[in-house]
Write a protein that binds this DNA or RNA. Structure first.
Lengths: 221, 221
DNA sequence: TAAATAAACGGAGGCGCCTCCGTTTTAGTG
DNA sequence: CACTAAAACGGAGGCGCCTCCGTTTATTTA
C-alpha cells in the first residue's frame, strides 16, 4: 500500500451473480459415467486449469488474476470462463478437490500406520491444510455462507474421515475407548478461529500433540 | 443475460480491502465539532456524493458504476475515492444515513400523530425501507457480517426508535400495556426474511395491520 | 479415410476499478 | 487585498473482468 510504483493490488472478490446454482461439480472425474462427457481436449484443459488455480490460490491468494491463471495453464481466458463462469466456481472446485485430497490421505495413512499414529499424522496434515486456508478466510467464509451445499458436503466428508480414524484407533485399543469423534473434531476446530499470531503453526502442532496425549491416556494398549 | 448486445452487467461487489477499520463515519455532519472540519468545497462534494449514491443504489442496485456516481455528482472519480476509499465505505455511509432518516421519522411521527397511529405509520415506513434493501440483500448482508460495529450501531438505533414508539403508545393507553417492544421488533423482523414473492409488499402491509390490531386489542383507551 | 458437424478454443475489445500526480481552490496571514 | 501553504480536485492510464464470435479441433458418419 505504501511504496508501490504503478502497482495494482486487486484485493478483489466477486460475489453476487447467480449463486442460486447448485454445485458446479458432478463432472470432474471422467469416472462418473453420467452427465456429459467432456471432449478430450476440454477435459485436459479443465484439469490443467484446476491444477494451476490450486497452486496459484495457495501461492498468491484467491485474488490472483484469472487471466494469469489462464495464461499459466496455457489456455485462453475464454476457455477459463467457459469452464468456470465465475471466480467462485473455480474456487469452489479447487476447494472441493483439496478436501477430497485430505480425505484420501486419511485412508492412506490408515493403511500405512498404526491407528493412533495415523490419527496424529492426519491431524497434523489437517493443520497444514487449515494453514493454507487462513489467508483466504474472508472469501472462503463468504463462499461457504452463500453455498450451504458446499459447506455441508465438505464438512461431512472431513468429519467422516476423522471419525473413521478415531474409531479405528479406539477399536485397536490405541486410544481410550470413551472418546467421541465429534469432540476431537471440535477441539481441532478451535485452531481455525485462533488468532493469527506468527507462532500459530507451532501452537497448533502442540495442540495436536496434547490432544493425542489425552487420547492415548488410559488406552487399553 | 440473454439478448444483450454488447451489454456489460457488472454484478460486482468488492470485498476484502482493509475492512479492519472502524466505521468511516464520525465526520458527516458539520455539527460534530471534533475530528477535522472539511474544507467547504470538500464537504459540499462529499454531501453531493452521498446524496447521489443513495439515489443510484436505490435505483440501480449497489453495483452501479462508481464512475457514474462521480459523474452524476459532478466530481472526478479521484474525489470520490478520496472520500470513500472503497465501495463499501460509500455503501456504509449511505446505509447509516438511511437508518438515521428512519429514526428521525420516528420522532416526527410521534410529534404529529396519536401514539398508535405514529407507531403504525412508522412500521409501514419500515416496510418501505426494507423493501428497498431486499435487492441489495447479498451485499448488505456481507457488509453487515464483516462489520459488526455497523450492525450493532444500526440495529440498536432502529430498535431504540421502535421501543420509544411502542412505549409511548402503551403509556398513552392506545395499545395494550403488556407488550414488549422487542417482540414487536421480532415480528417485524420476519418480513425481512420472507420469500421474495411479487405480493411481498402487500403481505407485509397486512402483517403490520394485523400486528396493530393485536396491539390495540385490550388497550385502556 | 474424408466429409460433416458439434464442441471447444482464444483473444480482441469494451468496460469498470483504482492510483498517481500535476493543477486548482480554499483558508489563513501580513 | 496579495500571498502562500495546505487541502482538495480530477482525469489519464494501467490493469483486471468478462463477453462475443470467428477459427480450430475432436468426434461421428459415410
Amino acid at each position: 500500500m505504501g511504496a508501490d510504483p504503478n502497482g495494482f493490488k486487486p484485493h478483489i472478490a466477486r460475489v453476487e451473480k447467480k449463486l442460486t446454482g447448485q454445485s458446479p461439480e458432478t463432472a470432474e472425474k471422467p469416472e462418473t459415467p453420467a452427465l456429459k462427457r467432456l471432449r478430450a481436449d476440454a477435459q485436459r484443459n479443465r484439469d490443467k486449469l484446476v491444477e494451476v488455480a490450486a497452486q496459484a490460490f495457495a501461492a498468491d491468494g484467491v485474488d490472483v488474476s484469472l487471466e494469469d491463471i489462464a495464461k499459466r495453464a496455457g489456455v485462453g481466458i475464454g476457455t477459463l470462463y467457459r469452464h468456470f463462469p465465475t471466480r467462485e466456481h473455480l474456487v469452489e472446485v479447487v476447494y472441493r478437490r483439496e478436501v477430497e485430497g485430505l480425505c484420501q490421505a486419511a485412508e492412506e495413512l490408515a493403511r500405512d500406520h498404526p491407528a493412533d499414529v495415523a490419527l496424529e499424522l492426519w491431524m497434523q496434515r489437517f493443520v497444514d491444510y487449515i494453514a493454507t486456508k487462513r489467508g483466504l478466510a474472508t472469501s472462503l467464509r463468504l463462499l461457504l455462507s452463500t453455498n450451504s451445499t458446499l459447506f455441508s458436503d465438505t464438512s461431512g466428508r472431513v468429519s467422516g474421515a476423522m471419525r473413521r480414524l478415531v474409531e479405528a484407533a479406539a477399536a485397536a485399543g490405541k486410544i481410550r475407548a470413551d472418546v467421541d469423534a465429534s469432540d476431537v473434531m471440535h477441539a481441532l476446530g478451535g485452531i481455525y478461529s485462533a488468532p493469527n499470531t506468527p507462532d500459530w503453526r507451532e501452537r497448533s502442532g502442540r495442540l495436536v500433540k496434547l490432544l493425542m496425549d489425552g487420547l492415548r491416556f488410559g488406552a487399553r494398549g
